[in-house]
Each structure stands twice: as structure tokens, then as C-alpha cells.
Amino acid sequence: MFAGFERIGHVITPGDVPAGKPPLLAYPIDPSSRVVRDGSRLNQVLLVRLAVEDLDEDTRARSADGVVAYSGVCTHTGCDVTVWQAETRRFRCPCHESEFDPRDRGRVVGGPAPRRLPQLPVKVVDGVIVADGAFIGRPGFQPG
């Protein structure tokens, strides 16, 4: 299912997202059909574990054991958000240097992005991470 390099290829558990590690890039899987919904880049999700006490109230409410999930597509011009700044614990987009704070609902903290990185509420069910609703905001850039 996930041919290629550096891919996990199984359903993600909280243990796959350890503290202090850079984000994991994931795609959703439909729980009933088992179809991996990787047909669109807009479905890619970044998972990272942060200290629960660092999360703001809303962010925490949408997290599971400190694991937060965000759209992996920049709201500026739609690039993959692939850079993790470990010291500041921020996502950074390699295309135009937009930065987002995953502790504060994906707030823009640098660069040209016009709006937050949409957060995906998550919870843990039967030991795996599942989405607990839709993205908060529309993933990707806004075609003008």
C-alpha cells in the first residue's frame, strides 16, 4: 500500500508520534472501506507531539495526549509544509518561509501566509489516532 521509502504503511498509534521528534506526514484512511485517501495533496496531515501544558485551550481540546494534527499544505500558495523548526517548535514552509505555531491553532507567526494552518481535531480510539471532525478551516491556498 505504501511502496517507497521512509513510509510506515500502517495505521498510526500515539506511539508513532513520540515527543521531541519532527512531525509525521500522514494521509487519512477511511475506517470502513480501508481506502487511503491520498488522491489529493490537500488531504495530507502533519502529526506532532507537544507538551500538553504548552497548548492553548482550543488546541488542546482538539489534541490527543499532546498529539496535534494540522493540514500539511501551506495556506499561502499551497506548498508542502515540510520544515520543522525544533527549537521554536514551529512548522515552516520551504517555498516562501511562512511559519505556523502548532501550539496555538496553527497561527501564522512569520512569512506571507494569509491564514492559519487548519487544525484537524484528533482523538485516540482503540489505540489509534482518528480524526474527530473536519479540518478547522479550509486546507490549501485560496485560488483567487
Binding site: F2, V11, L24, A26, P31, S40, R92, A131
Partner: peptide, 22 residues
């Protein structure tokens, strides 16, 4: 002080369709 994200693609169980319904 950046570090690139591990490009490990796992899968995530979702209870709803993403993006399109929003």
C-alpha cells in the same frame, strides 16, 4: 534552526471525509 520533517507517511483513521465537506 530548522530540521526537516521525516517524510514518513503512515495512515490516519478518519471518521469523516476531509476537505471536501468543509
Amino acid at each position: 534552526t530548522t530540521a526537516r520533517a521525516v517524510v514518513a507517511i503512515g495512515s490516519l483513521l478518519v471518521a469523516t471525509t476531509v476537505a471536501a465537506t468543509l
